[in-house]
Write a protein that binds this DNA or RNA. Structure first.
Length: 314
DNA sequence: AAACGTGACAACCGCGGTCGG
DNA sequence: CCCGACCGCGGTTGTCACGTT
């Protein structure tokens, strides 16, 4: 369409913003709103192009932006959303309150991408790329296997939903972004949120130093997780006061709510008594989590219904 | 202390979609 | 319907801070 480059105008400033410029932009928008970005710079007394102003506002000056390090919860959420959505940063950002798409994109490129690669996971496809040979091989493999299984699961579910309701696939870059997100929440995003519930109870320790338990939820998956089942096959009777009371004889022991606690020293305490909440001496197993994969993963299956497999993420 | 390398992230660029005349 | 202006997105680059040699 032959558009002129936005920031090539004569006399327009480029590069890092000064405090003075920030003040001018902030003051103008707080007073008048941004209106047309094209005309804003002149009105605000800035020698910048509208595009540059918009970017500065959206990615830096906006008052509702949350800055600082990403929490483990946010990181997990990014990974899961990326597995489902790919590089649709704006959609991913819509599900991480107060984070910008640019910030998430940068964080992905500089942190998460490298970590996944190191774990032997292709950050684009979320599939395993090679065998691991680190000292944490066992744990790393579990993590990788689960990551892949989870990705496959979300992908298959999303595809199934798409096949059932193709017309519901909203067009990208909808002008009305809120509407767009709402559609995805109720439709495309559902599998992802099922998984994400696992992290919603918080992370690590509380302010007073007490261990904070996780609230776990489970995603039924049709994906074969044989490798993981073999690794952790221990038959135990499982009975809890929680939502899965009716499930007995679970292959693996990690199953009820509130009985897994992540400690600061990268270990996980697991209650074997199935009571949850209270980790009684003698009924606790200690489990090392790989140095960087605090999404250390486990699954268990229900012997009464071998077809039903669950994934647990913490 | 200087040069160099690396990581983090802010900022820019070009493309495609949307809207209004 | 067409076309140009505008906006928003994702990929890429630039800049700075910090660590290492």
């Amino acid at each position: 369409m032959g558009k002129s480059p936005c920031c090539s105008g004569v006399g327009l400033k480029r590069g890092p913003w000064t405090q003075e410029e920030d003040k001018k932009l902030l003051a103008y928008i707080q007073e008048n709103g941004h209106g047309s970005w094209r005309t804003l710079p002149q009105k605000a007394g800035l020698k910048r192009c509208g595009k540059s102003c918009r970017l500065r506002w959206i990615n830096y000056l906006r008052p509702d932006i949350k800055r600082g390090e990403f929490t483990a919860y946010e990181e997990q959420r990014i990974i899961q959303l990326h597995a489902l959505l790919g590089n649709r940063w704006s959609v991913i950002a819509a599900h991480l309150p107060n984070r910008t798409d640019n910030e998430i994109k940068n964080y992905w490129n500089t942190h998460i991408k490298k970590r996944l690669t190191k774990m032997g996971i292709d950050p684009i496809t979320h599939k395993k790329t090679h065998n691991l040979s680190s000292s944490n091989e066992g744990m790393m493999n579990l993590s990788v296997i689960h990551h892949i299984a989870q990705w496959e699961s979300t992908r298959l579910e999303a595809e199934a939903r798409l096949a059932q309701h193709p017309k519901n696939l909203s067009a990208p870059h909808n002008k009305n972004s809120n509407e767009n997100v709402a559609n995805e929440d109720s439709f495309m995003m559902k599998p992802s949120f099922d998984i994400l519930k696992a992290w919603q109870s918080g992370y690590g320790n509380t302010n007073n130093g007490a261990a904070q338990p996780y609230t776990l939820s489970f995603l039924e998956s049709a994906v074969s997780m044989l490798a993981m089942r073999e690794s952790f096959k221990t038959t135990a009777t499982w009975s809890t006061g929680h939502a899965y009371d009716n499930v007995k004889n679970v292959d693996n022991i990690w199953s009820s709510q509130n009985d897994i606690v992540l400690q600061e020293d990268n270990k996980v305490l697991i209650s074997e008594d199935g009571i949850g909440d209270v980790l009684l001496p003698g009924n606790v197993r200690e489990l090392n989590i790989g140095e960087e994969n605090y999404w250390g993963d486990f699954s268990f299956s229900n012997n009464n219904n071998p077809e039903t497999l669950y994934s647990v993420v913490f």
